[in-house]
Simulated assay, not measured.
Amino acid sequence: MFRNANYIYTVYQERNFSRAAEKLFISQSSLSLTIKKAEERIGAPIFNRSVSPIGLTEFGKKYIAAVEEMRRIQNRLENDIYEINHLKQGHLSVGAGNFHSTYLLPLALSPFREAYPKVLVDMHESTTQELLKKLDRGEIDLLFSNKHLPEKQYRKFVICHEFTVLVVPEKYCTCPEIRQQARTREELSRYPVQQLENHLLPPVFLTNFQQTPFVLLRPGNNSRQRADTLFLEAGFQPSVVLELDQASTAYRLAASGLGAAIVSNLMVRTMEPPQHCCFFPLEVPHTEQYISVYFPKEAIMTKAMEEFIKIARIAIPAVL
């Protein structure tokens, strides 16, 4: 029944016979014939070919679920073998968004590779929504994210915390009183959240920037949701000149003078500093969040996962 499971699963992933055939390095006609024979042998159709892109039949959904469960079992067995060998070989797959995979994950991956050079590390870079799907399907082992996930479904290991910073081009900071509230990159990088809570690093009020254009992330993004909450509490709708998918792009556009951006203090800390921008801390608690590593509670924590989390919890905060 599962003789051609890899072919069938690839078609399911690609939703297209032609793309699946290219990925499998076989002809489309050969792939179509193989799957047709597999369906005849099983005794039920797996794919609904009457819709575009192709979908799954009711039986097909059960078949794919069984294949994914088999893959999880296979991964667990392989990881058990790796643990027996004391991580002399193995595999670890980590997912993260653009900023985290570029600036934070390398801080943990480098010492992990030094400690376990024979463990193959695979990194997936995408949106949290897409990475969550991969995590649930068992395609990645760990998810590196600042989004809060349900505790009933996922185990959580906090790596570090961050808070939100308002980055404003100097040309929009013409009021002397407001400019006096601006902080340097070093101050925002050095001070912990407790400094904000105790007002040792006084926050700026968003109402001072009602006439300022903003560069924000698209609706639905975790950071955009927090920004919308801040604007709602400030009592005004911002003038949004551009919506983006990546916070790092918003930061660069703010540096170019296009408009103000709301980003993480870790981004201000790690990315190249803009020349003509003012930095302002914002009110907590809406601006504070934690960057954590997640994996499904039903999954088994392998030795590779355990060691990576240990290293990440030491290496990343040490640099930040």
Rank of each mutant, 00 (worst) to 15 (best):
Y172P: 01
S239W: 02
S32I: 00
T229G: 11
Q13K: 12
A21S: 01
A44Q: 08
F205G: 15
R76V: 12
I311D: 06
T128M: 15
N208Y: 05
S52R: 02
H86W: 07
E130Q: 15
F157A: 06
A260Y: 09
L282H: 05
A115V: 10
F308E: 11
P317W: 14
N221M: 12
R113F: 04
H276G: 03
S223Q: 12
Q194Y: 12
L149K: 07
A20R: 00
Y290W: 07
Q195R: 15
N4Y: 12
R15I: 00
T287D: 01
P238N: 03
L282V: 13
L92V: 02
Q211V: 12
Q153F: 09
T302W: 03
L120P: 03
E288Y: 08
V158I: 08
V67K: 11
E298R: 08
L266I: 14
S32M: 00
I64L: 02
G259M: 04
N98K: 15
E130D: 15
R252M: 04
V240L: 04
F59Y: 14
Y63I: 06
Q153S: 12
Y191V: 15
G60S: 10
Y103A: 14
S126M: 13
M70I: 13
R3W: 09
R226S: 06
S256H: 12
R71P: 08
V215M: 06
M267S: 10
P213T: 11
H86D: 13
P202L: 12
S52V: 05
A21P: 07
L196M: 10
P238C: 03
V215S: 03
R179E: 13
H91S: 14
I262G: 03
K152V: 11
A5V: 01
P192L: 09
I300C: 01
M271F: 08
M301Q: 09
G55L: 00
I35V: 05
R76N: 12
E197H: 08
V241T: 11
K61M: 07
G220I: 10
L216G: 00
P202N: 07
H100P: 12
S93P: 00
Q89R: 11
V241S: 09
G97H: 14
L149A: 06
R313Y: 08
L232P: 07
F25R: 01
P273I: 14
F2M: 13
L31G: 00
K156P: 01
T174I: 04
Q89S: 14
